[in-house]
């Protein structure tokens, strides 16, 4: 940690959590559970198993907090634990489960009184979820981490345990695959989306 840099919000939360403050512990869970769950879901493809993975990962992370190297971000370290726990779970399942035909999508937030806009947004989300489900799990995961989780290439390398060149290649390939999947699902509307 840089001596001259003020402690980040994460550092403060971790320090308070280290002192056993319940609010800090709850805040850490709240802050990271959504991306942790999405990462787990991309790997195990099942909501119930994903929740189990997230629970295991959080408990493992807090139990091993003493081993956390402050050189990395807490989130990166936590997501790596989530990813490894999810992989273990998937291997334990043996055969990969079939993906649901209509993947769960979050309910779109209607921000205006325009009903058609809400319908269009819901449709977009539905087709995007379908397109993501067509991608190999690892590729969808890289897209999720980079674009939704705002994780840098270096952070994704640390989470997935891969080299920079491999992650860059995978990211490029995943983008192309997602675009192709969207084109296949929405041949005419595709150009308006991307």
């Amino acid at each position: 940690m840089d001596f001259f840099q003020p402690p980040s919000a994460d550092d403060l939360l971790l320090r308070q959590a280290g002192q056993g403050q319940p609010q800090a512990l709850a805040q850490l869970v709240q802050r990271y559970q959504a991306l942790a769950y999405t990462v787990a879901l991309r790997v195990v493809s099942n909501a119930e198993d994903a929740e189990e993975v997230v629970q295991d990962a959080f408990l493992k992370a807090f139990a091993a907090l003493g081993q956390f190297q402050r050189a990395a971000k807490f989130s990166t370290w936590l997501y790596r634990i989530v990813y490894n726990t999810a992989l273990t779970k998937k291997r334990a399942q043996g055969r990969p489960r079939e993906l649901p035909l209509t993947p769960a999508t979050p309910e779109p937030a209607v921000t205006s009184g325009d009903g058609w806009a809400a319908v269009r947004q819901a449709d977009q989300q539905k087709y995007l979820a379908l397109a993501l489900a067509r991608l190999p799990a690892d590729d969808a995961l890289v897209l999720t981490l980079h674009y939704l989780g705002e994780q840098s290439i270096a952070e994704i390398c640390a989470i997935l345990g891969k080299k920079t060149s491999a992650v860059k290649m995978q990211l490029l390939r995943s983008r192309q695959q997602l675009e192709a999947a969207l084109l296949q699902l929405l041949p005419t509307e595709h150009q308006h989306l991307l």
Partner: peptide, 15 residues
């Protein structure tokens, strides 16, 4: 980046 915007509009899955 339209792809990023599209993904972000979908948002993270929530438990």
């Amino acid at each position: 980046d339209p792809l990023k915007a599209l993904l972000q509009a979908q948002g993270l899955q929530q438990p």
